[in-house]
C-alpha cells in the first residue's frame, strides 16, 4: 500500500432490498491520509452511497469501515456524534439550512460545539471561513434561497470547514454548475486542501477533467466494486478497457 490510511474499507457490501441487488459489491479501499483522493465512476456506480458509508450515515450490509483508525460500527450514537466533528462535508446541493442566513449557517456548527466561545468569537471565526471560501461579505445576511449555485457551494464549504475537520468530503461538488463555476469550485477545493495542513480530502465526482486537475490519488468504481485505485499515471497506463473508454470519453468531452 505504501501510505497511511485515513479511511479504510474492507469487503463492504450494501443492499437496500434485503440482498437481491447490491449497490456496493465488496469494496476494498484505502484513502491515503493527507492527500486529495478523487473517486470517479459512471452515474449509478455507488459513489454517493460509498461516501455516506464513510460518514456513518449508512451502515454496510457486511464489511468494515474505518475512519481515522476508528471502526464506525463499534461506536455508540453519542461517540459517533463526537467523532463526526472531525469530518466536514460539502453536499451535492450544499444542504444549507434554508431558514438561516449565510452567516448563521456557518455559525451553527460553531455554536453547537464551541459552547464556551462568545458570540463575538463565533461570528469572527465564521467570517474568516466565509472569506477563505471567497464569499463577498455583502452576501452574509442573505438567505440560501437568494444565492446562486456557486455561492451556495462556497457557503457549504465554509460551513464544512468551520470546525477545522481532519477529513473533508465533497459529494459531486460541481454537479449542476456551468464549466466556469465548476472550475472555480475545483480551485476552491484545491486551495482548501492546500491551506488546511495535513487534511485529507475525498471528492466524489464523475467529472474526469476535475479528477485529473485535483487528484493525488484516484479511485474508479464500477458496478459497486473498485476497478482501479492509484495515481494519475496508473490510470493513464491502465489496460482495463472500461478505464480507457472512460478516459477517452472524458477527455473528448
Amino acid at each position: 500500500m505504501g501510505f497511511k490510511s485515513a479511511i479504510s474499507m474492507q469487503q463492504v457490501t450494501k443492499s437496500f432490498d434485503g440482498g437481491k441487488e447490491f449497490v456496493l459489491n465488496g469494496i476494498d479501499l484505502d484513502i491515503p491520509k493527507g492527500q486529495l483522493t478523487v473517486i470517479i465512476g459512471y452515474s449509478g456506480t455507488g459513489k454517493s452511497v460509498l461516501l455516506k458509508h464513510m460518514l456513518g450515515l449508512l451502515q454496510p450490509t457486511s464489511g468494515k469501515v474505518e475512519v481515522l483508525g476508528r471502526d464506525l460500527a463499534s461506536m455508540s450514537p453519542d461517540e459517533m456524534g463526537r467523532f463526526r466533528r472531525r469530518l466536514g462535508v460539502l453536499f451535492q446541493h450544499a444542504a444549507l439550512f434554508d431558514d438561516m442566513t449565510v452567516l448563521e449557517n456557518v455559525c451553527f456548527p460553531l455554536r453547537e460545539h464551541r459552547r464556551y466561545w462568545t458570540a463575538q468569537q463565533i461570528v469572527e471565526v465564521a467570517e474568516t471561513k466565509l472569506a477563505a471560501s471567497g464569499l463577498d461579505p455583502k452576501h452574509y445576511g442573505k438567505l440560501p434561497g437568494e444565492l446562486s449555485g456557486g455561492m451556495r457551494k462556497r457557503v457549504g464549504l465554509a460551513r464544512a470547514i468551520a470546525l477545522d475537520p481532519e477529513v473533508i468530503l465533497y459529494d459531486e461538488p460541481t454537479t449542476g454548475l456551468d464549466p466556469i463555476l465548476s472550475e472555480m469550485v475545483d480551485d476552491l477545493i484545491l486551495e482548501t486542501h492546500q491551506r488546511v495542513e495535513g487534511a485529507t480530502s475525498v471528492v466524489v465526482s464523475h467529472d474526469l477533467f476535475a479528477a485529473f486537475r485535483l487528484a493525488d490519488h484516484m479511485v474508479m468504481l464500477d458496478k459497486g466494486k473498485v476497478l482501479l485505485a492509484g495515481t494519475q499515471e496508473d490510470f493513464h497506463n491502465s489496460q482495463v478497457e472500461l478505464i480507457q473508454r472512460f478516459l477517452a470519453k472524458g477527455f473528448k468531452k
Partner: peptide, 18 residues
C-alpha cells in the same frame, strides 16, 4: 420532510448534532 430530501438532516448528523 423537505429537510430530509434536501440532505439538511444528513448535514445536521454529519455536524455531530442529533
Amino acid at each position: 420532510g423537505t429537510m430530509r430530501v434536501t440532505e439538511q438532516i444528513d448535514a445536521l448528523q454529519v455536524m455531530g448534532i442529533n
